[in-house]
Design a protein around this nucleic acid. Structure first.
Length: 222
DNA sequence: GCGACAG
DNA sequence: ATCTTGTCGC
């Protein structure tokens, strides 16, 4: 694989980013969380499974759940995650027939060397509102948020604000929130806050992850 | 040159 | 990212 040409593609797609709000965060009601798992992470071509959970932030309830399976070949390479996971994300996205206000992905939005983490990449390709909620650091400088739920601090890359690092739950490691597409850094945080229900991860991606574990277990136990 | 590096 | 129950700390 030629990483330099993939870099070129990331730079080209990043030019299409819209970092303004397509929808005001206080009008967001349905947030879709997308997550992936693999049948055998130690094998290279292996079956990948994607889940998409639509979460109603007003009713605090699950609207619908969708799944998609496909063989995955591309390896995990930091800053090129989308080339491994995007085919699965697009597959489950096409299955979703519910009107979604914003898509939340596991991973970075524009907190990425070329502003094109998987959430940004997906948002540009599908022209939807998207944001990234990552569980760990990739790049960027920041101060640790206080140990108080909801506290957050800016994350800078090349002296530019790219997102926020938030203490979503007391005594838990912070999460990294950044715009994907058609949303501001501030609205990405607001949208995440709407989805926090006492767990470290916001409900859409947390539930997608949980449903995937069940789905995967059933596949393995037969 | 060295270390860090989403999932 | 997975395996895997109980256990410790706030």
């Amino acid at each position: 694989m030629d990483l330099s040409s993939l870099k070129d593609e990331q730079n080209r797609l990043a030019l299409k980013l819209n970092l303004k709000d397509r929808i005001s965060p206080n009008r967001v009601r349905f947030v879709a969380g997308i997550d992936l798992t693999y049948l055998n992470i130690w094998k290279n071509p292996t079956l990948g499974i994607a889940a998409l959970v639509v979460w109603d932030v007003k009713e605090k309830s699950i609207v619908d759940v969708f799944y998609y399976e496909q063989e995955v070949d591309f390896p995990y390479i930091p800053t090129f995650l989308a080339y491994r996971e995007l085919p699965l994300v697009l597959g489950v996205f096409k299955k979703c027939n519910v009107e979604v206000d914003a898509f939340m992905l596991d991973g970075m939005g524009i907190i990425h060397p070329r502003k094109l983490g998987i959430a940004a990449h997906f948002g540009v390709v599908c022209d939807v509102v998207s944001l990234g909620c990552a569980k760990s650091h990739l790049i960027g400088v920041y101060d640790e948020p206080a140990n108080v739920p909801g506290d957050y601090k800016p994350v800078f890359v090349e002296n530019e604000l790219r997102g926020f690092v938030m203490r979503s739950r007391k005594n838990a490691n912070p999460i990294f929130i950044s715009p994907g597409n058609n949303i501001t850094s501030h609205s990405a945080v607001e949208t995440t806050l709407l989805c926090l229900e006492g767990y470290r991860l916001p409900q859409p991606t947390r539930l997608a992850h949980n449903y995937l574990q069940q789905y995967r277990r059933k596949l393995l136990s037969r």
